[in-house]
Design a protein around this nucleic acid. Structure first.
Length: 778
DNA sequence: TTAGGGTTTG
C-alpha cells in the first residue's frame, strides 16, 4: 500500500480512501489479526512530542478516541508512529483532527495502559506499508482560537426560511441576497438590513440593530453566507421579517465554493461543528447555481459613466467639504479611463500623507459622500481598506469646461445598499489589493494627463514649456523598431520595384487602415494549418451541445473530481452539472481550481470563469466526459474563450487532464490543457491593412500581431471596453482623423516582402515585423 | 426607537 499523508482541512466530508480497505471498530481489534487492508479512524485527543529512539528512528505517539463508541468502557487507543511518517504526522496532526490509520500492526502494549484505553496499540510506519489520512476539523480551528470551547457545544436546530412563524425566536442559515452595510440609524443604534435566501426558495429580510457595530454581521458581499442565532421572527406587511432580539449572534462566511470556511464574528464563544461545515458547503453549492452573484468588484479602470458600482479601495485622504458632504480620496491601483472630477477643498482641511497624495494624484478618485454617510466617513482612518457600495459614476455637467469628466458620488440614504464598509486587513481581497498596490509603479511615464496636472500644480512654469514638449512629441515617430536599428531607411517606391522576399526599414505615414471598426480586426489563427477564421460572436451558439440530456448522466464522483448537479428553476428544468477537479485529493482555492461544466449557458460559464481558474464545457458520454464540438470554446479562462482548430485537433478524453491535475502545482496553462486534450489551439490575432505613404508611393502592408505591436493581447480585447478604447486612441494617434497629410505623424517600421503564388497569379505582399507603438503613445 | 431593500438629483 502506498504511503499517503493527506491533510484535509475544510475539505471533503468523506476520506478519500481506497475502496479496498475496510473500517475496523475499536472493540473488534484483536492481536494476531492481519490489518493490512483495514483502517481505524479516531480523533486525536492526546499527542506527545516527536522523539528519537536509540537507533535514531523518529517516534511519535498519539492517542485516538473512537467517537462512534464513546459510551463503551474502552474508547481510545495508543498509536505509535515510526520513521518519516512520525515526523510528518507530528507536523500535521493536531488535537481534534480525525486521523485514519490504514495497514497498521496491532501489538500488546508493554506497559499497563490508562483506564478506558485499549490494551493494545497500533504500530504505524512506512516500512510496514501503512497509510495515514488526516482531516482537520473546523472545531479544531475554533479550539485553537478559543481553547476548551469544542467539548461543550450545545446542539442547535436551524429553521429553513419557508418554515418561519410569527412571534418565534429561531436559528437560521441563509445566503445573503442583499445587504446594507451597518450605518448610523436615526435612533441610538447602528442598523444593517440583510435579505437572505435558502434552498427552500423563501426570502427573509432582517432588520438588525446594535449599539455596537461589531456585533452586526460582517457581510462584505452578496453571496456571503450567514448563520443567525436567536433572531426574532415577526410578521410585517404580510411578510415574515427578522429582527434582532436579546442574545442575537451571527457568523458570516465567504460564499465561494472551495474557499476556506472561516467564520467572521465578534462573538467570543461560538460553536462550529462538522455538521455545520456541511451546511455551509451545501449552501455554497446551491448559491453557485441559483443566485446571480456578480464577478469580482469593479476597479476604477472599469468604471463606466452613468452607472453605480462597488469599489474596494484604500483611503489616502479625506476632507470636510461643507455641512452636507465630505470628501474621500481613495485608490485601487488602477486608473479611471475618463478624466475624473477633483473636488476643490481647502488645503488645511485635507487630511492624509501629503507626499503620498501628490504621488497618487493621477490614481486617486475623489468620492463625495453625503448626508447620513458623513459621520462614518469622518471616522475612517487614513490607510484603511474600504468597500464603498453603490457609488454613482455621474457624467459631469456639459456646460462645465471639461464636460466629459466623471464625478463620483455616494448619495444620501441607504437605497440599494449604499454605504461604506470597512474591510479588515486579513480579508483575502484586501490582501490581494495590498499586493497589487505595492506593485504599482508610482514613477510612471510622463503622459499628457499627468503633464496637465503638473502644470496645474506649478511644476511646469508656463504654457511655452508644455507647447515645446508637445512639439517634441510630435516629431518623434509614433512607432519604433524593436530590432534592426542599424538598417537604413528604404523609400516605398524602391520597395515596390524590388523582387521579394526582402526586409526593409521604412519611415512613412499611415494614410488609412482597414478595418475601421477595430474589433473586426481580431481573428483566430491556427499556426499549424495557417488558417484564419472569425471569432464566434456572443450567444450560446456552439454550446447547445453541452445540454445534459439524459437523466442518468454519469454522475461520477471519481478520484480526481467531485460532481454536483443542479436543476434550473425555470420551466425547462435544465440540469447543470459542475465537476470540481481536485488536487492531491483536496479541493483547492477557486482561483486555482479547474472546473468542468455540463449544461451551462455561456453566461453561466463566464460567471464561473471569473471565480475559478478555468472552465471547460463538457458533456457526459458512457465512459466519462468529453469535450464539446470545437465550434464551442474548449476552455474559458479569465476573460478569454479558447478555441481549437477543427482541422488540426484530435480531441482526447477529458481524463487526459489527470496528468496535469497530478502535477505538484498545476498551472492550468491553456497551452498545456490544449496539448493533453489533443487540441491545436487557435490564437487571437489582430489582422489589419495599413496604407503607408512617404511621398514616393503608397504601399499596402499587413499587420499580423498577437500583442507586440499594440502592446494589447488580441485575446483580451473583445472582452474589454477599456482595451478597445485604448486601441482606438492608439490608432487615433497613428492616424489622427481629419488631419492633413503633412500633419500626420511618422511611423518607423520594419517590413518583409514575400511571394504568394498560385496557378493563375503571383503577388507580392508586405507585412510589418519587429515594430511596436512608441512608449509615449501607448 | 432606529427600519421595514429597489439609487440623487448635491
Amino acid at each position: 500500500m502506498p504511503v499517503v499523508l493527506v491533510k484535509i482541512v475544510n475539505g471533503l466530508s468523506e476520506m478519500p480512501l481506497p475502496s479496498i480497505i475496510q473500517k475496523e471498530e475499536l472493540n473488534n481489534l484483536q492481536e494476531g489479526v492481519d490489518y493490512t487492508n483495514k483502517y481505524f479512524q479516531g480523533v486525536v485527543v492526546l499527542s506527545y512530542p516527536l522523539m528519537k529512539l536509540e537507533d535514531g528512528t523518529k517516534f511519535f505517539k498519539v492517542v485516538l478516541q473512537d467517537m462512534s463508541n464513546l459510551s463503551s468502557p474502552i474508547n481510545s487507543i495508543n498509536v505509535l508512529i515510526y520513521g518519516k511518517m512520525a515526523e510528518d504526522c507530528s507536523r500535521t496532526l493536531h488535537h481534534g483532527d480525525t486521523f485514519v490509520v490504514a495497514g497498521f500492526k496491532l501489538a500488546k502494549s508493554p506497559t499497563l495502559t490508562e483506564s478506558g484505553r485499549h490494551p493494545c496499540h497500533l504500530e504505524v510506519s512506512e516500512d510496514a506499508g501503512s497509510a495515514v489520512y488526516v482531516r482537520g476539523t473546523f472545531s479544531r480551528i475554533c479550539s485553537m482560537i478559543l481553547p476548551g470551547t469544542e467539548s461543550v457545544a450545545p446542539k442547535y436546530a436551524y429553521t429553513s426560511l419557508n418554515q418561519l412563524k410569527d412571534g418565534t425566536i429561531v436559528n437560521l442559515y441563509g445566503v445573503v441576497k442583499f445587504f446594507k452595510p451597518p450605518y448610523v440609524s436615526k435612533g441610538t443604534d447602528y442598523c444593517s438590513v440583510v435579505t437572505l435566501v435558502d434552498p427552500s426558495n423563501a426570502k427573509l429580510t432582517c432588520t438588525l440593530f446594535s449599539g455596537n457595530v461589531h456585533s452586526l454581521p460582517k457581510i462584505y458581499k452578496v453571496g456571503d453566507i450567514v448563520r443567525f442565532h436567536r433572531i426574532k421572527i415577526r410578521e410585517y406587511n404580510g411578510q415574515m421579517q427578522g429582527i434582532t432580539s436579546g442574545g442575537f449572534a451571527s457568523l458570516t462566511f465567504d460564499g465561494t465554493v472551495g474557499s476556506p470556511i472561516i467564520p467572521r464574528t465578534s462573538s467570543k464563544v461560538y460553536t462550529f461543528m462538522e455538521e455545520e461545515l456541511k451546511t455551509i458547503k451545501e449552501l455554497r453549492a446551491w448559491a453557485a447555481s441559483n443566485l446571480s452573484i456578480s464577478g469580482p468588484p469593479a476597479k476604477l479602470s472599469d468604471v463606466q459613466p452613468m452607472l453605480f458600482f462597488d469599489l474596494t479601495c484604500q483611503l489616502v485622504g479625506k476632507a470636510r467639504v461643507d455641512g452636507s458632504s465630505f470628501l474621500l480620496k481613495v485608490w485601487d491601483g488602477t486608473k479611471c479611463p475618463y478624466p475624473t472630477w477633483k473636488v476643490p477643498v481647502e488645503e488645511r482641511d485635507l487630511e492624509g500623507e501629503k507626499i503620498l497624495l501628490h504621488q497618487l494624484r493621477n490614481l486617486t478618485a475623489d468620492i463625495l459622500v453625503y448626508d447620513n454617510h458623513m459621520q462614518l466617513a469622518k471616522s475612517l482612518k487614513i490607510g484603511s481598506f474600504l468597500r464603498i457600495y453603490s457609488i454613482h459614476a455621474k457624467q459631469g455637467s456639459a456646460d462645465n469646461e471639461d464636460g466629459s469628466h466623471i464625478e463620483f458620488h455616494l448619495h444620501g440614504g441607504t437605497c440599494y445598499g449604499r454605504g461604506i464598509g470597512i474591510l479588515p486587513e486579513n480579508n483575502p481581497e484586501v490582501v490581494e489589493l495590498k499586493g497589487f498596490l505595492d506593485s504599482v509603479d508610482l514613477g510612471g511615464s510622463l503622459d499628457m494627463e499627468s503633464m496637465s496636472s503638473l502644470e496645474a500644480e506649478g511644476t511646469f512654469n508656463n504654457v511655452t514649456d508644455i507647447e515645446s514638449h508637445l512639439q517634441r512629441c510630435q516629431q518623434l515617430p509614433v512607432t519604433v523598431l524593436t530590432d534592426h536599428q542599424d538598417l537604413k531607411n528604404t523609400d516605398l517606391k524602391t520597395i515596390l520595384n524590388s523582387p521579394a522576399p526582402q526586409q526593409y526599414r521604412i519611415r512613412a505615414k499611415l494614410r488609412t487602415y482597414k478595418p475601421q471598426k477595430l474589433y473586426q480586426s481580431v481573428k483566430l489563427h491556427c499556426s499549424k494549418c495557417n488558417s484564419l477564421q472569425e471569432v464566434p460572436i456572443g450567444n450560446d451558439l456552439g454550446l447547445q451541445d453541452s445540454a445534459v440530456t439524459a437523466l442518468n448522466t454519469v454522475f461520477h464522483n471519481t478520484s480526481w473530481y467531485d460532481s454536483v448537479m443542479w436543476t434550473s428553476e425555470d420551466q425547462k428544468e435544465r440540469k447543470i452539472v459542475i465537476h470540481f477537479v481536485r488536487h492531491n485529493e483536496l479541493l483547492q482555492h477557486p482561483k486555482d481550481t479547474l472546473i468542468m461544466i455540463e449544461g451551462g449557458t455561456l453566461k453561466e460559464m463566464w460567471k464561473l470563469a471569473k471565480r475559478f481558474k478555468c472552465v471547460i464545457p463538457v458533456r457526459s458520454v458512457e465512459d466519462g466526459l468529453q469535450l464539446l464540438d470545437l465550434s464551442a470554446p474548449f476552455l474559458l479562462q479569465g476573460n478569454v474563450k479558447y478555441y481549437g482548430c477543427k482541422q488540426c485537433s484530435t480531441p482526447k478524453p477529458i481524463k487526459s487532464l489527470i496528468s496535469l491535475a497530478a502535477e505538484q502545482r498545476p498551472s492550468w496553462e491553456p497551452s498545456e490543457i490544449a496539448q493533453v486534450l489533443g487540441i491545436e489551439p487557435l490564437q487571437y490575432v489582430f489582422v489589419m491593412r495599413f496604407t503607408l505613404v512617404d511621398g514616393t508611393g503608397p504601399l499596402n502592408v499587413y499587420l499580423f500581431d498577437y500583442e507586440k505591436f499594440f502592446q494589447i493581447p488580441a485575446s483580451e480585447i473583445l472582452a474589454s471596453n477599456y482595451l478597445q478604447q485604448k486601441m482606438q486612441m492608439t490608432m487615433n494617434t497613428l492616424c489622427p482623423p481629419g488631419r492633413k497629410l503633412d500633419d500626420l505623424p511618422w511611423l518607423e517600421c520594419f517590413i518583409k516582402s514575400y511571394n504568394i503564388k498560385d496557378e493563375t497569379k503571383h503577388q507580392v505582399y508586405y507585412q510589418i515585423f519587429d515594430t511596436t507603438v512608441a512608449e509615449d503613445v501607448v
